[in-house]
Design a protein around this nucleic acid. Structure first.
Length: 426
RNA sequence: GGUGAGGUUCCCGAGUGGCCAAAGGGAUCAGACUGUAAAUCUGACGCGCAAGCUUCGGUGGUUCGAAUCCACCCCUCACCA
């Protein structure tokens, strides 16, 4: 066990995959005072997703422990693409697009870590500031000279691309590691940054950065990686049928976000509580004890979903989400009053307007609950479709004024979890 | 630039002139069972109520008939220059 309180806690949470140096070096380093650490986020989309959350929350954990986080946005590295453990070469995006992404990602980072603290504020950096105008000769002489191609080829993170018969790796992506290493050296020089964290796939890049910093700045710096988040059933974490789970409420609604977490498997949920929430390990253990000793539905999923939704979307959004979820899954839809429906609409329940009565099959297609009429018909025939809580098995069923609740609302459910609220206009 | 191997429905992958909307597996979806789990079982899985229609990198061609043959083109990979 580490002599540093923060590190012991992280260890207990299973949040440390690898760290550099011998066991106590980092502990001592952190014990000596407030340190600056960084984690890089490459702009590969217009929003962060929950895969980014573990390292981002790690920055927050360090900040809460009194250290100073630097969130580095990869304005330069994002234009190259990190090949680490990627099976295929990535396509490049234009500068304009990437700049937009940088902007929105920066805002998301700011909503999680605190940039306004007087004691130990977080800072935002963009590696394009020091790499954008870098001269190729300077790069090759000052940075490139310190790297051995022999060693780089040997790295596990690029092996996949070098060994595979049908894939290659471009020089561009191959160089990525040099850029990230240089980031560390620059941040060390300019911000006195002495620790880099990242996903376990970043280990190779991080150690390369430690070496380069030692050579360029003669400073001892540290690296630490977080475990890859896995699921017990072996499927990829962080994906739903509709793709990644984004932090941007426009891309993944708070409701969908909450639903993602509440559907966590029993086999994963206590581990995820340790990874993602700020509940203490003791509290989490207590929850697990209780779930195991009482029959029926465990409480852990609900706690996880609430914690995460509050953290990312805030208390107000959580309230809305809870109202929707309760109405849909625990309530009697027939008993919902007009205000409840209006609230569902306002709370971000997937909904749309229609002007005229239409058939159930068309309704399913228009609401996106089915992607073709063929399929919609299949759902109806299988008894997978409910209107206002009542199963509809007739594929010729018409949705009109008489079928609405309170003269206006048609709540369609497909399968167990897909809902859509149709509002029939006058 | 040369040589070789390839590009099949979401993915992997069979299919080498009609029996192919295209085997098999995976993923996904639905139903049953449940806890909005897991496991399991059942069914669906290009579009269409149907007749039928549109698919196998692209464009032309051969043929009664092509994913399958021919020509050209595009793309990927490997090796060589």
């Amino acid at each position: 066990m580490s002599t540093n309180t923060l590190l012991s806690d992280l260890q207990a949470r299973g949040l440390i995959a690898q760290k550099s140096g011998d066991d106590d070096a980092l502990s001592e380093h952190l014990n000596q005072g407030s340190r600056t650490l960084y984690c890089g986020f490459d702009p590969t989309a217009d929003s962060l997703h929950i895969g980014h959350l573990v390292p981002l929350l790690m920055l927050k954990r360090f900040q809460l422990a009194g250290h100073k986080p630097v969130a580095l946005i990869g304005g330069a590295t994002g234009m190259i693409g990190d090949p680490s453990f990627k099976a295929t070469e990535r396509s490049l995006n234009s500068v304009e697009v990437i700049d937009q992404w940088i902007d929105s990602i920066g805002k998301q980072l700011a909503s999680i870590i605190d940039f306004d603290s007087t004691e130990n504020p977080a800072t935002l950096a963009n590696n394009r500031d020091w790499m954008g105008g870098m001269n190729i000769m300077a790069f090759l002489r000052d940075v490139g000279k310190h790297f051995s191609v022999n060693a780089m080829i040997g790295k596990e993170s690029v092996r996949q691309r070098i060994d595979r018969p049908d894939q290659g790796i471009s020089f561009t992506e191959f160089s990525y590691s040099l850029l990230q290493s240089y980031d560390f050296a620059v941040l060390n020089r300019n911000h006195d940054c002495s620790l880099q964290i990242g996903g376990n796939d970043q280990w190779g890049n991080i150690t390369a950065g430690i070496d380069l910093t030692r050579r360029l700045n003669s400073n001892q710096v540290f690296g630490m990686t977080l475990p890859l988040i896995t699921k017990a059933d072996g499927t990829k974490f962080g994906k739903t049928e509709s793709g990644a789970v984004w932090l941007d409420p426009q891309k993944t609604s708070p409701y969908a976000f909450y639903q993602f977490w509440i559907n966590t498997a029993d086999a994963d949920v206590y581990r995820f509580l340790r990874y993602y929430t700020f509940l203490s390990v003791a509290e989490i253990d207590a929850i697990e004890q209780e779930d195991q000793s009482s029959p029926g539905k465990p409480k852990a999923q609900g706690i996880l979903a609430e914690e995460m939704t509050r953290l990312v979307h805030g208390e107000a959004a959580l309230g809305q989400v809870l109202r929707i979820s309760t109405a849909l899954f625990n309530g009697d839809i027939q008993a919902l009053d007009q205000d409840a429906f209006r609230q569902l609409e306002l709370d971000g329940m997937p909904s749309s307007q229609i002007d005229n009565p239409l058939g159930i099959v068309d309704a399913l297609v228009e609401t996106g609950l089915a992607d073709s009429r063929r399929r919609a018909r299949e759902f109806v025939t299988n008894g997978a479709v409910q209107l206002n809580g009542v199963v509809i098995k007739d594929d010729a069923f018409m949705l009109g004024r008489e079928q609405t609740m309170h003269g206006r609302y048609l709540l369609i459910r497909r399968g167990k979890k897909q809902f859509h609220l149709l509002c029939l206009e006058d």
